[in-house]
């Protein structure tokens, strides 16, 4: 039978291990990704880089595994609209952006779990290939729940409820943007109408 002192020591070291595990997990998953901001959008310049620190590497592995180095691709992400409110899958948003200085760009919506929203019509993203640019040089489109009235016209269809994250991918960004990613004219995200319940 273990003595009381041994049991107390066992409990102490078990707690230390559990706290070490929990603090690492919370630090990696709850503390926001560091990076450079352009409006509500943030880009981590060490994503995929061999120079990434341990925390960045762990966060990238969980939230954006197999990211490319910044020289090949810049990944801007946001989970907030222009009014600083959290993006919600059950709400409609209008997005407007000036096509960024890159060989190719796309905006994709992801559910809170990091995966695409189910949509039989495969309306997952808008890219430089299929975006229609207005006379003022901006591409405009709706992100809306499939079940909402706006869902018919949406270029990106969401479903369910909960948080949502948008990723703007810039493949082979121009040198100027690589050097100063904060100079990106950030895509505008405005909540449009009411959310479905």
């Amino acid at each position: 039978m273990l003595k009381g002192t041994t049991l107390r020591l066992l409990a102490l070291y078990t707690c230390a291990v559990l706290l070490g595990l929990a603090s690492a997990w919370l630090w990696v998953t709850r503390v926001g990704m560091s990076g450079v901001d352009a409006g509500q959008w943030r880009v981590n310049l060490l994503a995929g880089s061999t120079r990434a620190d341990a925390y960045t590497r762990a966060r990238i592995a969980i939230f954006a595994l197999l990211a490319l180095d910044r020289r090949e691709t810049l990944y801007y992400t946001t989970d907030r609209d222009d009014d600083d409110a959290t993006l919600r899958a059950e709400c409609t948003y209008s997005v407007a952006l000036r096509p960024p200085a890159a060989r190719w760009w796309s905006i994709t919506a992801y559910a809170a779990d990091g995966f695409l929203f189910p949509d039989k019509a495969h309306r997952y993203s808008v890219s430089g290939e299929n975006a229609q640019v207005d006379a003022d040089g901006r591409a405009r489109f709706l992100i809306a729940p499939q079940s909402s009235p706006a869902g018919v016209d949406a270029r990106i269809a969401t479903s369910g409820t909960g948080g949502m994250r948008l990723t703007l991918r810039l493949y082979q960004p121009d040198d100027s943007l690589q050097r100063a990613p904060q100079t990106l004219d950030p895509p505008r995200i405005k909540k449009d109408g009411r959310c479905v319940s």
Binding site: Y13, A16, V17, L19, G20, S23, A24, W25, V28, A54
Partner: peptide
């Protein structure tokens, strides 16, 4: 115990991308 906590924390952060 504090040392064990810190080492566990560092090892977890180091191991996460490798395990994934």
């Amino acid at each position: 115990a504090i040392g064990v906590l810190l080492v566990t924390h560092a090892l977890t952060v180091w191991a996460l991308p490798r395990v994934i």
